[in-house]
Design a protein around this nucleic acid. Structure first.
Length: 457
DNA sequence: ACAATGGTCC
DNA sequence: ACTCGGACCATTGTA
């Protein structure tokens, strides 16, 4: 499907999607076994703090409402807000059971009543408490490590994480970093996080061959700023925060097969205005537009689309007479090759990195003698990671992959090796595939997951 | 046990 | 009326 790209500066490892799946499997099992350490004390402290705050909010909500009710029930909440308190609901979305109480809707009436703000805040805290703060400590093993399970059966080739899902740990807001601070490195070790910068946009620029977008990446521009410059017809240096935000949303929208409605919702603007942006975007980026049309046509005639490495997704309903069903699959036809190829690049980099780490371990000058003294000094003989206590020596202070979050890899390494391995990760990931544009990876080292984001290695 | 609703991540 | 890709999980409320 992509053989025509071979002449466009792209160079691919001789490997198929199936082989990638086969090779990634033992790596995933090793990562599951290794797990990631949770600072149980810290997370329980945070939990207590937020619980107290949550109760105060609860009381304040009951007071504003003039009655007690179940805030977690959309049904009861809607009744209180839109019947008892008579808040205007005309502008808000409906669900099957009545007016939607989704945060995106409640925000529209936040100025109409004092009760809305505490509700939104209460919701946020409830979410964090019930999904992360309370359950995670209970799932940690005797060494405080969390062992997720990685799944490989998705429609685009992405990996999943479950029981617990460690791919949706909060990062946004004030509390996100607080929570991520509880994901820590073992004593004497560091976490290194390396993530691909705008990998999906780079992939689509390459799959489409769109000259403007390729140029943006090839010359190291801020791609969202550039898009903003194009959309608003200003110099790239004169782009405002807001213009860049809009452009960023449009860029993401492209990957999802955006419609004027979807974009209007995402940006809280009118559909007309959204349609203007889309029109302008596709005028400047006709290569992207052609890509979208090509994928839809391909799916219509062949019944499937493929990623760069040949992962196939069937789209049996793309010729459905039901517009809504057909259009949904059209968006999949656009998105799957992009998301799927990005996933393959990440998996390829995992395979390469696992090899690199193995070599590094075998050549390591830190031999068993040093291990022994290190172990004694650090006093952690009884809290290391491997299931088999007899293997303690060989696995402590051994760099290993422990987590992946779609465009990010996290390893845990002895601190004295952190700098070196951070560099290895960056090079390995950036060189995993040669696209027609450069691939950039940012790396950070820290004692915990949050700190890896502040520290450029 | 299951659908609906809502929310977290990339 | 509906509408932007891919996941997992908690809670409510009904069957």
């Amino acid at each position: 499907m992509w053989s025509h790209l071979r002449k466009s500066g792209i160079k691919l490892p001789k490997i198929t999607a199936k082989e990638i799946e086969r090779k990634i499997d033992p790596i995933l099992r090793q990562m599951e076994k290794a797990g990631i350490k949770l600072d149980v004390k810290a997370i329980q402290l945070l939990s207590k703090k937020l619980e107290a705050k949550s109760q105060k909010l609860e009381a304040s909500i009951y007071k504003s409402a003039g009655e007690k009710f179940n805030i977690a029930s959309p049904l009861q909440l809607a009744e209180v807000l839109f019947e008892k308190l008579r808040l205007p609901s005309e502008e808000l979305k409906r669900t099957k059971s009545g007016v939607s109480t989704a945060a995106s809707e409640l925000k529209k009436v936040v100025d109409k009543h004092e009760i809305i703000k505490p509700i939104l805040e209460y919701r946020e805290l409830s979410k964090l408490l019930s999904t992360y703060l309370k359950p995670l400590p209970a799932m940690a093993d005797k060494n405080s490590r969390l062992h997720t399970h990685f799944g490989q059966d998705t429609s685009t080739g992405r990996l999943t994480s479950f029981e617990p899902n460690l791919q949706n740990i909060p990062i946004k807001g004030e509390l996100g970093p607080e929570i991520r601070r509880s994901f820590v490195a073992e004593k004497g070790c560091k976490l290194i996080s390396a993530d691909y910068s705008q990998i999906e946009l780079r992939v689509v620029s390459c799959l489409s061959g769109d000259p403007a977008m390729m140029e943006a990446f090839s010359t190291g521009q801020d791609v969202h700023a550039r898009t903003a410059a194009e959309l608003f017809d200003v110099e790239i240096t004169e782009v405002s925060h807001d213009q860049r935000r809009v452009a960023k949303t449009v860029n993401f929208g492209v990957l999802y097969g955006m419609s004027p409605y979807g974009l209007s919702q995402a940006l809280s603007i009118s559909q007309d205005e959204a349609a203007k942006y889309i029109g302008r975007y596709f005028t400047v980026h006709s290569g992207i537009k052609d890509y979208c049309n090509r994928m839809i046509e391909l799916a219509r005639s062949e019944g499937y689309v493929e990623t760069l490495f040949g992962f196939r997704r069937e789209l049996p309903n793309i010729n459905s007479p039901h517009r809504q069903i057909a259009e949904a699959e059209e968006r999949m036809a656009i998105n799957t090759p992009v998301q799927g190829t990005a996933a393959e690049i990440l998996k390829l980099s995992m395979i390469r990195l696992a090899d690199q780490l193995k070599v590094l371990n075998e050549n390591s000058k830190i031999k068993s003698q040093n291990y022994n003294s290190k172990l004694k000094n650090s006093g952690i003989l009884n809290q290391v990671q491997d299931d088999d206590p007899k293997n303690l020596k060989s696995c402590y202070l051994k760099p290993r992959l422990i987590l992946t979050v779609h465009d990010e890899l996290i390893v845990e390494v002895p601190e004295e090796q952190a700098k070196k391995i951070a560099q290895v990760m960056k090079e390995t990931m950036e060189g995993a595939v040669k696209l027609c544009v450069p691939i950039e990876v940012s790396v950070g080292v820290g004692e915990n997951w949050a700190d890896t984001k502040n520290n450029v290695a």
